[in-house]
Amino acid sequence: MTLLAVERIKLFSTRSPYWCTALAIAMSVGFAALLAANADQVGVGLTQAGTRLALVVVLVLGALAVTTEYRFSTIRATFLAVPGRTSALVAKTAVVALVAGVIGEVAAFGSWAIAKVIKPNADLAINTGAEWRAVAGVGLTFAIGAILAIAVGILVRQTAGAVAILLVWSMLAENLVGLIPKVGVKIQAWLPFMNADNFLAVNTPSAGEVEATGGGVVFKLSQWGSLAYFAGIAVALLVVALVVAKRRDA
């Protein structure tokens, strides 16, 4: 508990988390407003389109939470105060993941609410399990994304490097893999952010439907399975990062 309090004080006594939070929420809500205003047909799933961008901002927030500590050597001050490096870093991860989760929920329900205000007559009731997952599940993917980002931050230590890796990977690389003939889409079914997206999807086409529409990713996991897979990758990466941090000179 003490360590959680420490990390909370550290996180909220600098500016970047506030900026990232504001930006993440503004982006998803703003995007939802734009879509709602311009689309003919608005569904619950569509209102969440902007949260995918907000996730990227949360990845940056997570990476910054560690890389700034390395940049300003406050990580050394941290390890002086708390020589158990693993517990110090796990506490940081917990706090940042929690904050990311809250950002995700606010962004998701905020986006949904603004669409509802703009298109009061559209069918935006959240009443199926899939719809609940698509909205309330956003916070989960943000929290897991934050864990992944922190792991990358610990491993890379430099802000520019960590942010570049996270952005290129989550926004570009996973999509480009699909361009590889034949095996591309098969690999995509096992990529972390693809699985996060699969978890949030309202309509998941079956293998047959994918075939009919001329290709696409056929996920081998159920939607909750995809989330567990995404979480598994994040936690595995974090474990590697913790081991490295423990062995490395601070």
Binding site: I9, K10, S13, T14, T68, E69, S73, T74, R76, A77
Partner: peptide, 15 residues
């Protein structure tokens, strides 16, 4: 210099 530049002296000592 092992201090976050945007953190106040008090917050730094507080954590």
């Amino acid at each position: 210099k092992w201090v976050h530049p945007n953190r106040s002296a008090r917050s730094h000592l507080k954590w």
